[in-house]
Design a protein around this nucleic acid. Sequence first.
DNA 1: TTATATACATACGGCCACGTATATATTCAA
DNA 2: TTGAATATATACGTGGCCGTATGTATATAA
Lengths: 220, 220
Amino acid sequence: MARRTKQEADETREALLDAAEEVFLERGVSRASLDQVARAAGCTRGAVHWHFGDKLGLFLALDERLLLYQDEACQMLDGDGGCEPTSMPQMFQWIGDAMERLERDPHRRRLLTVMLQRCEYVQEMAPALDRRRNADMAMRERLLGFFQRAEARGEISPAWQPDQAARFLHALISGLLTEWLNSGGQFSLSAQVRESLGLFLNCLCGVAQRETAKVASPTC
Amino acid sequence: MARRTKQEADETREALLDAAEEVFLERGVSRASLDQVARAAGCTRGAVHWHFGDKLGLFLALDERLLLYQDEACQMLDGDGGCEPTSMPQMFQWIGDAMERLERDPHRRRLLTVMLQRCEYVQEMAPALDRRRNADMAMRERLLGFFQRAEARGEISPAWQPDQAARFLHALISGLLTEWLNSGGQFSLSAQVRESLGLFLNCLCGVAQRETAKVASPTC
DNA sequence: TTATATACATACGGCCACGTATATATTCAA
DNA sequence: TTGAATATATACGTGGCCGTATGTATATAA
């Protein structure tokens, strides 16, 4: 065929990414051929090479499409959008909401599965892994800052140091997410996260205040 | 060459598995060729095909080599070897010890990295994933049983249900392990696990008894 | 002692997927 | 209106890797 309009070209680009998502999920990144991806998108390998160069380019473009919950959390904890959480229960509520968004979006679910279980992070694939590593580190730092401020306000039980709490919480979330993906979505991620965070909150703040469930979801 | 003695044959088999471990780690399972594995072991593809049939056979044999900490934990919690843990701190101490064994054994570390980050669990590769899934489920069940007995003895704070505690603990451990592998061994897994389990223990049992660090490692 | 199974090495054939080159038909800018 | 850039499809060549077949020397059993 021939030159499409700019919009049509963007549409095939998106179709290719959608197709790559499905084919990568089913066959794994390395066993998936560019031809299979192209066919699934209703075109040929020519289109793939034009838009992404090679398979690595396609993979990295797909990776950029994935909104990391860690980045969302950083934005939230930085107060971008004028919605900085002030209380501990509010922040925990927000994390539960973020997991619910992730759980509800089959797009993100598939993409995350591809990135965590359908590719081999080696050599040129490393950038995608680095992105998640950096996002993890950034999130842990923001959590640390948040807990430090909370400690200054006297909201944290003296049994917990802020850095301990940050690492603990991060490991807990990432563990629940890993298991959720491993189980193939057997249980509800957000429900499990909310339960665990509720228990953690009681530990962290002392059993006195139990107001987790009563806080309404913030709009941002 | 020709027929080696039975022992020599076993040695080349082990050499092939060692080589596969390294090559898979560096290049990923799918990009690694059987020739590369064979050369690294000092022989040719003939030996690989003789001992393992094909790459899938090699991969599954390698997987069986990996001692899962989940299976270890099941044995411990079942009291196999006459060493059933009776107190909560003792059990937590044991988990820390298990993580230390894992951390110290570069063999297991590499293998675990291969299984979690260097292969795509799809189609025929699934058996290896299933093994870990089943081990996870089994471990969670044993933890549940243990916590139920502990609750009956009144060792658990009423804020925690046994099943909540089991899921929580399991997620925490698996999260720490995941992050440890992701970070490339930046921090000490066992130290981090011990710290987190100590904090968790205080939550679970109420802050009253703090005897975690004083219990000596059991010999089994 | 000898036949046979064993434990590999080597050789052969073939496919699949990839990259590149080229063809082609539009669109868009001038 | 026309040339050039664009957005693909098609064609071509090639290399890597795999499975299988076959060669072969030796351990081991009878």
